[in-house]
Design a protein around this nucleic acid. Structure first.
Length: 340
DNA sequence: AACCCGTGGGG
DNA sequence: TCCCCAAGGGT
């Protein structure tokens, strides 16, 4: 892009952003800790979904040391339903690192901040630019989409290698006086105008420097190859009740899918003959790359002629546990059928 | 590099 | 129904 167009690009984007930006909770103050929480929550997650969780976190942990002092299970409970639970575990671990290694305040270089758990290339750049006005790239899906169109970049954005092209482009284009506004402006534009389908090019503040628009090819960019589809799994879920009205719960392992979340015991269909139990409900839950098809049975402990791993929990205790989302639905159904 | 890791909404 | 997408990071 010509130097004159770059200046035009910066000025138009920043003017538009500061005039049109949405009023979002994490834009009220520029506390690096608040920015950090919002950036982690916003990973692969829409603004409308994040807002209530963000408010809940700020209320539960107003300062960084507050979160550092919390139990992981407490943090997970506040994250329940938001998805990608390693984000919560990594954020919590990262916050504790900052207390231990940096006396409670985030470092301001890309190298140091990137060493913190859960802070990758994007989040590092986002915190540095938004909270500290450091001119660093923060390349997410929005930025790749916007710049692929403006600069007419035809590389496959599904390939990790391609991101480097966009990071270098941002370092050349970024406004050194307002890195925060520039990075957020690109993302805001991608979220509201330069959308994946049917971009509103006629409303776009930078349509006069957009190569794709000038060629009428904005709908063909970015180029992104498809991923493979999800695999289906069958499980039996047992809601086992003992003579005290307690239910058997198990905690998932500390790594992998739904790590450290609680569930009713899940069994492989070949592991247990369920023909003597009445099926209570079926449930389908779709993850990004996996589908659970669950057959749920209510069972009295005495009728279960096998030893199942787990811990007996009262209703009050179960209520407070961070539960895997499909289990929340099962728990809600169980509560409805056992009122009083 | 390729795969794992959630959820809700839109077309 | 199905597919895609949304302010990615860890392994």
């Amino acid at each position: 892009m010509k130097a004159q167009d770059i200046r035009r690009f910066r000025e138009a984007l920043l003017t538009w952003y500061h005039k049109e930006k949405r009023d979002l909770p994490w834009r009220k103050a520029n506390d690096p800790y608040h920015i950090w929480i919002s950036e982690v929550m916003l990973q692969q997650t829409k603004v409308d979904t994040v807002i209530p969780y963000y408010e809940k976190f700020i209320e539960a942990y107003p300062t960084l040391p507050d979160m550092a002092a919390a139990d992981e299970e407490h943090v997970l409970k506040n994250w329940e339903g938001l998805g990608y639970y390693s984000r919560a575990r990594n954020l919590h671990a990262g916050v504790k690192e900052v207390v231990e290694r940096y006396n409670g305040s985030l470092p301001t270089t890309r190298e140091e901040i990137s060493s913190i758990r859960g802070i990758g290339p994007y989040t590092a750049g986002a915190i540095l630019s938004i909270a500290y006005q450091v001119p660093e790239h923060a390349v997410d899906g929005n930025v790749m989409r916007v710049l692929s169109r403006v600069l007419f970049i035809e590389e496959d954005i599904a390939k990790p290698k391609t991101k480097k092209i966009f990071e270098e482009a941002v370092m050349e284009l970024i406004d050194r006086h307002d890195p925060s506004g520039f990075n957020q402006g690109l993302m805001e534009l991608g979220a509201t105008i330069c959308t994946p389908t049917k971009p509103s090019c006629l409303l776009c503040p930078i349509n006069d420097v957009c190569e794709a628009f000038s060629r009428g090819l904005q709908e063909t960019l970015p180029i992104k190859t498809k991923k493979t589809k999800a695999l289906s799994q069958q499980w039996n879920v047992l809601v086992v009740e003992n003579e005290h009205g307690e239910l058997l719960m198990e905690k998932r392992q500390s790594k992998g899918l739904l790590a450290n979340m609680w569930q009713f015991p899940m069994m492989d269909p070949n592991e247990l003959d369920v023909s003597m139990f009445a099926e209570k409900m079926t449930l389908k839950h779709v993850f990004s790359h996996l589908i659970w098809e669950l057959n749920v049975f209510y069972v009295k402990a005495n009728d279960l002629h096998m030893k199942a791993d787990g811990v007996w929990k009262s209703a009050d205790e179960i209520e407070k546990l961070p539960k895997a989302v499909p289990m929340i639905k099962i728990w809600d159904a169980y509560k409805k059928e056992n009122v009083g």
